[in-house]
Amino acid sequence: MRILLVSPKVTGIGGISRHVSALVERLRRKGLEVEVVSAENTPHIPVKGLYNPSFALTSAVKTLLLRVKRDGFDIVHGHNLPVWLSVKSAPARVEVLTLHGIYSESIRILYGGLAGDIATKLESWMLKRVDAVTCVSPRVCEYYQKIGVKTYYIPNGLDLEKLPREGVRLYERQVVYAGRLSYEKGFDILLEAVRLVDPSIHIVVLGSGLKELEERARRLSKELPNFHYLGFKEHFETLKIIAGSDALVLPSRAEGLPTVILEAMALKVPVIASRIPEITSAFGEPLAVLVEPENPVKLAEAVNNTLMNPPRHMIDRAREKVEREFNWDVITEKYVQLYAEILR
Score class of each variant (00 low, 15 high):
residue 128 K to P: 08
residue 236 F to E: 10
residue 85 L to S: 15
residue 341 E to L: 11
residue 51 Y to T: 14
residue 47 V to M: 13
residue 136 V to R: 01
residue 237 E to A: 02
residue 196 L to Q: 10
residue 150 K to M: 14
residue 304 N to W: 07
residue 336 V to C: 05
residue 130 V to D: 00
residue 41 N to W: 12
residue 161 E to S: 15
residue 49 G to R: 13
residue 308 M to E: 13
residue 274 S to Y: 11
residue 276 I to S: 05
residue 188 D to R: 02
residue 180 R to C: 09
residue 145 Q to H: 08
residue 36 V to I: 11
residue 188 D to S: 07
residue 326 F to H: 10
residue 253 R to W: 11
residue 341 E to P: 10
residue 120 T to I: 06
residue 319 R to C: 09
residue 256 G to C: 09
residue 162 K to N: 04
residue 121 K to H: 10
residue 211 K to Y: 12
residue 208 S to V: 11
residue 109 I to Y: 10
residue 97 L to S: 07
residue 65 L to K: 14
residue 321 K to G: 02
residue 43 P to N: 03
residue 110 L to S: 15
residue 305 N to L: 15
residue 1 M to G: 03
residue 55 F to R: 07
residue 111 Y to L: 01
residue 31 G to W: 03
residue 229 Y to Q: 01
residue 298 K to C: 02
residue 78 G to M: 05
residue 175 V to A: 02
residue 29 R to N: 12
residue 225 P to V: 00
residue 203 I to L: 09
residue 26 R to H: 02
residue 272 I to M: 07
residue 75 I to A: 00
residue 162 K to M: 03
residue 19 H to G: 00
residue 219 R to K: 09
residue 269 V to P: 03
residue 18 R to E: 11
residue 110 L to P: 07
residue 73 F to I: 01
residue 168 V to G: 08
residue 62 K to D: 04
residue 21 S to C: 03
residue 144 Y to Q: 06
residue 320 E to I: 05
residue 228 H to W: 05
residue 179 G to K: 06
residue 3 I to E: 12
residue 31 G to F: 01
residue 154 I to S: 10
residue 210 L to W: 13
residue 129 R to H: 11
residue 123 E to W: 10
residue 114 L to S: 13
residue 170 L to Q: 02
residue 303 V to S: 03
residue 19 H to T: 00
residue 235 H to C: 09
residue 302 A to F: 04
residue 12 G to T: 07
residue 267 L to D: 07
residue 17 S to K: 03
residue 204 V to L: 14
residue 280 T to D: 05
residue 232 F to R: 09
residue 271 V to H: 06
residue 159 D to L: 10
residue 167 G to N: 04
residue 140 V to L: 13
residue 32 L to W: 12
residue 58 T to N: 09
residue 298 K to I: 05
residue 249 V to D: 09
residue 186 G to L: 03
residue 146 K to T: 12
residue 310 P to G: 10
residue 198 D to M: 08
residue 60 A to P: 07
residue 25 E to L: 12
residue 108 R to L: 08
residue 9 K to R: 15
residue 107 I to F: 06
residue 297 V to L: 14
residue 157 G to T: 01
residue 52 N to L: 14
